[in-house]
Design a protein around this nucleic acid. Sequence first.
DNA 1: TGTGGGGCTTCCCATTATGGGAGGGTCAAG
DNA 2: CTTGACCCTCCCATAATGGGAAGCCCCACA
Lengths: 130, 130
Amino acid sequence: MSIGEAARASGVSEKMIRHYEAIGLLRPARQENGYRSYAAQDLAVLRFIRHARDLAFPLEDIRRLLALWRDRDRASAEVRRLALSHVAALEAKAQALQAMATSLKHLAAHCHGDDRPDCPILDELEGKHP
Amino acid sequence: MSIGEAARASGVSEKMIRHYEAIGLLRPARQENGYRSYAAQDLAVLRFIRHARDLAFPLEDIRRLLALWRDRDRASAEVRRLALSHVAALEAKAQALQAMATSLKHLAAHCHGDDRPDCPILDELEGKHP
DNA sequence: TGTGGGGCTTCCCATTATGGGAGGGTCAAG
DNA sequence: CTTGACCCTCCCATAATGGGAAGCCCCACA
């Protein structure tokens, strides 16, 4: 299976497939002409990566997850620990973003939003009312 | 005021102050010896930038906000529009992250997290139950 | 048999915001 | 005159992704 087919079958772009190979997540065989050749197992890895990326796991985490996945004797505790630590990171970031959104929404609520120039948003950014 | 003092006074690192200058957010005067010299207005700009960055405004937005800030005749509506569009982006990202966290938490809840190797988290990433 | 085109290869560059570090100049205090 | 604290510029790195160029491979079609 060529890289183009693998891309369509896995939902991972060709660019990214090559990149994942470059950083060692994947080692597809090569044909005589130098073209990459993807077997079923390679495709499974690509799908695994895509699902993990859909959950925003960083590639370094994915590298560890792949190692655990390949190791049939791993303790599920280790996977769980990795996942929960990622959950904590996701929630921390989500809450930080939501907090900023809420702050800014409050500021915008006090802004006339008309032709007049006075604007509490700019005032706040300026630090007028610290 | 030197860049070091400006950094301490504004809470923006020297590296970033130079960077903001490089991308044209700031034009500090220079002393005879080539050192940057920050006036009160420059400091105000740095503080403005920092506050905007604390709300995760991208630098391109900050460029526009600074222009609006400098323009005493701007319509507050424009500021408000920019702010609300940023709020939307923040909330979208926050919700996306939170959704991922929730999904992953559910998966982790079904994982024993002990010495046994079977793990619903890896099963899901693998796409065992699509 | 030649050519067109689609797919593949590698390599370089850009993105966003931030920082590390090298190599070297400036200046005041000791 | 040296030392040390600043400052300067320039290069590199991060994380993940994509754009694009230059060139090879191969098949189909005229």
